[in-house]
Simulated scan of single mutants.
Amino acid sequence: MSGMSKRSFMIQLSREQKTIENYMSFSNDVLGILALSLGASSLGFKHPQPFACFFLFVVLLWLVSKQGPLTLKHFRRYKTFMDNVQLMWDLKIYLIGCMFLGSIALGITTQESIYTLLGYAT
């Protein structure tokens, strides 16, 4: 490479882009798995709906509290339909976890419906 380091060829993200990437990574990895786990936990209660509502509130509150310096202007880069598809793909585990918690809170998903879906219906 004639004296040039590999590092000079890497694309450096701006501080704003790093902040957004860290936020997306945290939201997807930590909060997504937490939401799925809390949804599964709430199904263990006799009446899972109130627990799922509370857990969903906690997950959404945590997401907002971790937003920190980010504002809506940081997300304006998602302008086209494909940009929004990319945003949803970046947050897929988080979205699945929140939808799972929401469906339990609304009474759509129950232990019985999961057992039926998986073929364990009695």
Rank of each mutant, 00 (worst) to 15 (best):
S113T: 15
F75N: 03
K66Y: 10
L43V: 03
T71F: 01
Q49V: 02
F26Y: 15
L101T: 08
F9A: 13
F57I: 06
F45K: 02
F54I: 08
D83H: 15
G119R: 05
P69L: 14
R76S: 13
F81I: 14
T110F: 10
D83L: 00
I20L: 15
S25W: 05
L101M: 06
K46D: 10
S8D: 14
Q86K: 12
F55C: 09
M88A: 15
A121N: 11
L91W: 08
V58T: 08
S103Q: 11
L70N: 01
R15P: 00
L61S: 12
L87Y: 07
Y115W: 13
S37A: 07
Y115H: 13
C98F: 01
L91Q: 10
L36P: 00
S27F: 00
G68C: 05
E21L: 08
K6W: 13
Q111N: 15
S5V: 14
L63K: 04
I108E: 05
L106C: 07
Q17C: 02
K66N: 12
I114E: 09
I114N: 07
Y94D: 03
L101H: 00
L60I: 15
F81H: 09
L117T: 03
I33D: 10
F9W: 14
E16R: 06
K92C: 07
S41K: 08
L91N: 13
E16I: 03
G68K: 06
V85A: 09
Q67F: 10
I108D: 05
I104R: 04
S14E: 07
P50Y: 02
A52T: 04
L38E: 05
D29G: 07
R7W: 06
M82D: 08
S41Q: 08
W62Q: 11
L70A: 03
G102E: 09
M88I: 11
N22S: 15
R7T: 11
A121L: 11
K46T: 07
R7V: 10
K73F: 03
E112T: 12
M99V: 08
G3M: 10
T109M: 03
T80W: 05
Q86S: 07
L63T: 06
G32Y: 00
F54M: 13
K18Q: 13
E112S: 14
I108T: 08
S8Q: 13
L117F: 12
L72Q: 08
Y94I: 04
G3W: 08
L118F: 15
Y115G: 09
F100T: 01
A52R: 00
M4K: 14
I114F: 12
R15I: 08
K18D: 08
R15H: 04
Y94F: 15
I93L: 11
I11V: 15
Q49H: 00
S8E: 15
M24I: 15
